[in-house]
Design a protein around this nucleic acid. Structure first.
Lengths: 117, 117
DNA sequence: TCGAAATATTCTCATATCGGAATATATTGT
DNA sequence: ACAATATATTCCGATATGAGAATATTTCGA
């Protein structure tokens, strides 16, 4: 089994800095491809391709307006990422009271080794 | 300029499903490489390599214990991701009152086109 | 229908990535 | 020093990726 594609889910799509830039831009409103090109200094094909990936994984939506294609953010697609990262939130001590901290320590030390004897 | 490596920051590192699995596991406590291998059914080199990437980007820490290497989560490394995704939180209507929603709509419509005429 | 503008697709290239196997490097105990 | 265990590194192959250039497609206007 050689390799698995890295452009099929939101997680991997967002791994690409350019695509994050695009999402940041779209977070401020709908944009045409040309807008993206100019705002982020990309070539037109690059913009189209990145937008295509983002669309495929459901992070953006398209709407045809004349000969333009207006892309907008589909923030829902980011929820899985948010939810996953949130799982670790308690582990970096966001707003941690003493008891939580203590319970956490217990968990961290839960399995110091594979010692079966 | 051909391509940029995708294994240098937390974002891209986390794009790989196996690595997310590893982080999920480490979230429950320190683990040796062998532990990871067994828990996630990876080959030993694969585990080492993925752990190596995670370490390089600062998502895990290592501690030598005898001939074992105990890896633990460094949750702080996930904060950038969390913070970034959080930026979009309001856009999927987590807990949105009417005023926010209205302001948001204005923003979304901010730049419907490049129309200068 | 023809041309122009906007966008998408295709092609090629260099490279990075993952997986697997084999091997190298600790580290401990005897 | 030697064997055994644990882990890291290297080598190889297949493939996906992103970039760039060229081209195709769509859409509108005259």
């Amino acid at each position: 089994m050689p390799r698995s594609p890295t452009t099929l889910d939101a997680f991997s799509a967002v791994g690409e800095p350019r695509r994050r830039d695009i999402l940041d831009l779209l977070a401020r409103g709908e944009r045409s491809v040309t807008d993206v090109v100019q705002a982020l200094k990309l070539t037109q094909p690059q913009a189209s391709k990145h937008l295509g990936v983002l669309r495929k994984v459901g992070l953006v939506r398209v709407r045809g307006a004349g000969q333009q294609r207006l892309y907008s953010l589909n923030a829902d697609g980011l929820r899985p990422i948010h939810d996953w990262v949130k799982t670790f939130e308690r582990l970096w001590g966001e707003r941690l009271d003493r008891l939580d901290q203590y319970l956490q320590q217990l968990q961290t030390q839960e399995k110091p080794n594979g010692g079966s004897e």
